[in-house]
Design a protein around this nucleic acid. Structure first.
Lengths: 245, 245
DNA sequence: GTAGTCCGATTGTCCGGACATACGGATTGA
DNA sequence: TCAATCCGTATGTCCGGACAATCGGACTAC
């Protein structure tokens, strides 16, 4: 097959990664059609001038992403389903932007407060110690969409209101050198209180979608604790899961 | 350190898997405390009589699970946070059982119907072709908790009402030899219609948590499409995410 | 005292090979 | 005709080694 696979040994990009990218691109592009066999690893390695472990590493990374399926004695084939991207730690801002909605943010509160018991527990800091508190209203097409309350440990990040209105919190954290690693989420629903309804332009008692999330960086340190409410008519959580085998 | 690590070469269980399990157990047990270094791979391999790639494979699997963090030039250490288990494709039945709630199921509908356009699209079958339809009421402590509507392609599974009341749908599928692979989920909220409220013992207009999910097996074939409504006072979605690096 | 440099330690990448295991089709036997 | 067996094929596991890249601390020079 003319997949045009090739690797550049002078590049600093790892060989297995180059191969994985090319395979993923071929799947995305439709050159590798769902259900089609990938050709055996030995032969593929020989064709590319790579060793089998390297080829396997590339393939494995795509299997982990859910793009390929390996079956012993059969071969490796492209998953034939509409499942494309697995779950990511999503950012509302990025989600909206990807959907072409041009999100806007209004920062309502950006201050330092003593940590409540709940916040302290979530962030793993002492109660009443100083934490940043920001409250933001997220809009799409001029309509309120979500009300976001976040707490961050102090000293982690400069929280500039202007920047917060121009981009998302996660992006700010990443550009400050923080590598996000994992998060604990809880998604529920409840009736809007009067204040909540007011802020989001809903009626009191209207259903709201709620999300609480504690985010951790790669050292396991809590870097953010958020309590968000969404207008369910404007937003729902969409994601793909992979089963752990 | 006296971690008591050892592998059984006569076991059919892969060596890297044995090691991974023992390391995970040690972390769970607290023998390996958060933040502690794991000792370098070379020495660990020598101590266990394994090769370095095997040890690396074990460690990598735990890194993928989010239990360990590797840093070049430093070593591998246990993540120090409360993040323990990453996201799984959760089964409401298993969730409830794990929480010690002794779930009960009432099967209200178990029949074969022509596929609606929505169902046909989700399952990847022709419109009006035959699909199974089941409607179940899930109770915990005698209280209604969720109303579950599921559609399955015909010929996939024997859907015995008795079995459906005794266990969960996912467990049934797994024991029928279906390997679940991935799912596409959408979680939202809305106000209960009169009928929905009736079924769940809520008031009309009360907030409901909704979930739609299409599940795929390892060949990418859709095996189930579910439309569920939950009482938010009784249930919320809890899960951990890992960031894809 | 401070900044730059060097160096040991540790993980990251890659190789080539060996044998085990499971799947599916072909062959063989009843 | 149908079922059990054999066998080729492809992935799964494991080994031992080599060199590169990066981190952090120690040392050195200014």
């Amino acid at each position: 097959m003319a997949l045009g696979l090739s690797v550049d040994r002078s590049s600093p990009v790892p060989l297995y990664f180059q191969l994985a990218q090319q395979l993923e691109a071929a799947i995305e592009r439709g050159t590798l059609t769902p259900g089609s066999l990938l050709g055996n690893e030995i032969e593929l390695a020989a064709r590319l001038g790579l060793s089998r472990p390297t080829v396997r590493q590339a393939i494995q990374s795509l299997v982990d992403k859910g793009l390929l399926v390996r079956r012993r004695g059969v071969g490796t084939q492209v998953v034939h389903s509409q499942v494309k991207r697995p779950l990511e730690l999503s950012s509302l801002y990025d989600d909206l932007e990807a959907a072409g909605q041009r999100p806007a943010t209004k920062v309502l509160v950006n201050t330092v407060v003593p940590a409540s018991a709940e916040v302290a527990a979530a962030l793993g800091v002492a109660e009443d110690s100083e934490v940043h508190r920001i409250e933001r209203l997220r809009l799409a097409h001029g309509e309120p969409m979500a009300y976001l309350i976040n707490h961050l440990p102090s000293g982690l990040l400069e929280l500039d209101t202007g920047q917060l209105e121009a981009t998302g919190l996660y992006r700010l954290m990443r550009s400050a050198g923080i590598t996000l690693h994992s998060a604990r989420q809880s998604i529920g629903a409840r009736a809007a209180t009067f204040d909540e309804a007011e802020r989001l332009g809903e009626e009191e008692g209207a259903p709201l979608l709620t999300m609480q999330r504690a985010t951790f960086d790669d050292t396991g340190r809590a870097v953010e604790f958020g309590t968000h409410t969404y207008r369910p008519s404007r937003y729902s959580f969409e994601f793909q899961l992979l089963v752990r085998s």
